[in-house]
Design a protein around this nucleic acid. Structure first.
Lengths: 342, 342
DNA sequence: CCTGTATATACATACGTGTTTATACCATTG
DNA sequence: CAATGGTATAAACACGTATGTATATACAGG
């Protein structure tokens, strides 16, 4: 909390250099009032000479935009999120915004920090972020865009982009069924929380629903491997499951989990895809380069990122709430599901 | 550039609610002077009731820290960078900082934007970021930490963390030699620029140097595949190279390139590692899950990220320049280099 | 000459803070 | 009782910017 010894070039310096008042400098910078040609030239010259840059902080305080948005994610280490962030960054920059990134901390202090920083907008892609906190952001008049992995019907005043995970998961199950699979297990994410696989996760929800609708299982909750904290535990759980059950398909919550499960099965002598078909989610490069390559469900990241920024832009500039947009995932077929048998 | 209809709770509101002057509120918030117990209680109550949050922007304008740092990277889509960012975010948050992320744009406007935003510090991990721009940041008294993939000896006033890429690349070559390899090729990154593989890249520089020192090649520049714009071109280039040359080792600038090259060789009938040993860099999960798993050189991301934040903290709080820190990479042996032959 | 309009600039204020200076209060002391 | 000194609070200012309002000049039309 110490003071900063900032020696900043200010409007006043420019005014003195150019021999005009600070007001004139302001007019030149913002280009919103009449300024004499000659003075304008002198001011521009002085700005160049002194390397004057209007202080964004002071502008923001005076009511202008800060041109800064923040992206809140559950985790920022996955390929999916880094690609998403990359796209957000690209589009945001085109509109003059900087983008802040932070892993969701889910504390009041965190939310207070967001609000007190006067961000122009927030993009949230987080299953676990407290809805009450989201409402606080909205109540503070900060535009919020939700990349909805979950059900946000009960959150009003935010823009929403459904990313199609629920339908995608159902499609994955239907596809496996069309490949001839009947006994499908779902591998859930790493989690220290015991019962994480609740209905908040649209992928899992889609899996459960489609297993029932397809008549593949009355109790899909039993075809589930979850609660693993690390890769080793996933291998152990999968191996144990394979010892006790006969299965013909693995559905990984993401490509990494699918890959780990696949390799465990391979190590036990199962052939992929002849004995067990494998499908993942997210279409990450991991699934593309392992052996055999894993079929996956692609999320429309580019469009989602572009739309998110556009929505934020609209909310900031026009103060109107955009209509919800829904995207669909796209199935990428690879060798891990390409069986002869039908 | 429109105005924002921000209805913010201010210190004045709290003062009125609690029946004291704004000064007292300030003292309570900052806890830097004695305040009567009773009034303090009333103020705290009012703060809670009105959900008052001190405006970070206004504080920053008044000379306090903004508690915001920015991370500039060449690209933010690789696993290496997302892990790095994740660690940075973690440590930054522990010290109360937010972190902004942006792909390097290498324009004057971009640098101006950084400076005018009054960030407390900048972390740069970018080969291509113009040194002149770095000097501008330093000249504006913004603490800069360089994660040095390249040679920054001619940049004064910045903290530096060498990540050991040069030594790591040399070790890779020595290791391949110890595996019995003599004809090693280096696969460079995707790049639209024609002659990107210059000496700015410490990995390539290390490769060249060690090839010479080890007596493996007088002209290592010829053992290079570069200029490929996408994966397909890499495959083509590698295939063409294998047709004309006899090689026994592939050194990928990163694991992804190593993996692509490896698969190309496999498709042509070469056995890995018996015919061709393969080694990558970065120790990404990609190389861990492909077949066979690829040996790699691990970068000490966790320590580097932790040190970067600590250095920034020191520069911000104490206004002193930390000593340069050097980290070493660590070899991860996997099957792609485990040959019987010695 | 007066009035009105357009141009061009300056002044003053405000944004929400942190801090310096001033003041009111109260107790202690010579 | 007056002088002193400490303490708790208030008022005022400053950070760098944007802008409403006022001022000043020039010029046209009556």
């Amino acid at each position: 909390m110490e003071k900063k010894p900032y020696k900043q070039v200010t409007r006043k310096d420019v005014a003195e250099e150019a021999g005009v008042s600070v007001t004139v400098v302001s007019y030149v910078v913002n280009n919103n009032r009449y300024v004499d040609k000659e003075k304008r030239r002198r001011v521009e010259e002085a700005i160049k000479k002194l390397h004057y840059k209007p202080n964004t902080i002071a502008r923001a305080l005076k009511g202008k935009k800060l041109n800064h948005i923040v992206f809140i994610a559950d985790q920022i280490v996955t390929e999916h999120f880094s690609l998403l962030v990359s796209e957000l960054d690209k589009h945001a920059y085109d509109l003059g915004y900087m983008i802040s990134l932070c892993a969701n901390r889910n504390t009041q202090q965190f939310v207070d920090s967001i609000i007190s920083r006067q961000y122009d907008g927030v993009i949230i892609s987080s299953i676990s972020f407290n809805k009450e906190y989201i409402r606080q952001l909205i109540h503070a008049d900060i535009p919020v865009v939700l990349l909805a992995n979950r059900d946000y019907d009960d959150v009003e005043g935010a823009a929403k982009i459904y990313n199609g995970l629920y339908e995608g998961a159902r499609e994955n199950v239907r596809y496996l069924k069309s490949c001839g699979c009947r006994n499908i297990i779902y591998i859930d994410r790493f989690s220290k929380r015991q019962h994480f696989s609740d209905m908040n996760d649209m992928r899992y929800r889609g899996f459960v629903e489609e297993m029932k609708c397809s008549g593949l299982s009355e109790h899909p909750e039993e075809n589930l491997i979850t609660g693993c904290e690390n890769e080793e535990q996933v291998r152990e759980c999968v191996a144990a499951y394979l010892r006790d059950h006969k299965i013909d398909a693995i559905f990984g919550r993401n490509d990494k989990l699918a890959c780990i499960a696949m390799q465990t099965a391979q190590a036990l002598g199962y052939r992929i895809p002849e004995d067990i078909a494998v499908i993942g989610f997210d279409n990450s490069s991991l699934g593309q380069y392992c052996a055999p390559p894993i079929s996956s469900m692609e999320i429309q990241r580019e469009q989602i990122a572009k739309t998110a920024i556009e929505m934020l832009q609209q909310m900031i500039e026009e103060h109107t709430l955009p209509e919800m947009v829904m995207y669909r995932t796209r199935l990428i077929e690879r060798r891990s599901t390409m069986r002869e048998a039908q």
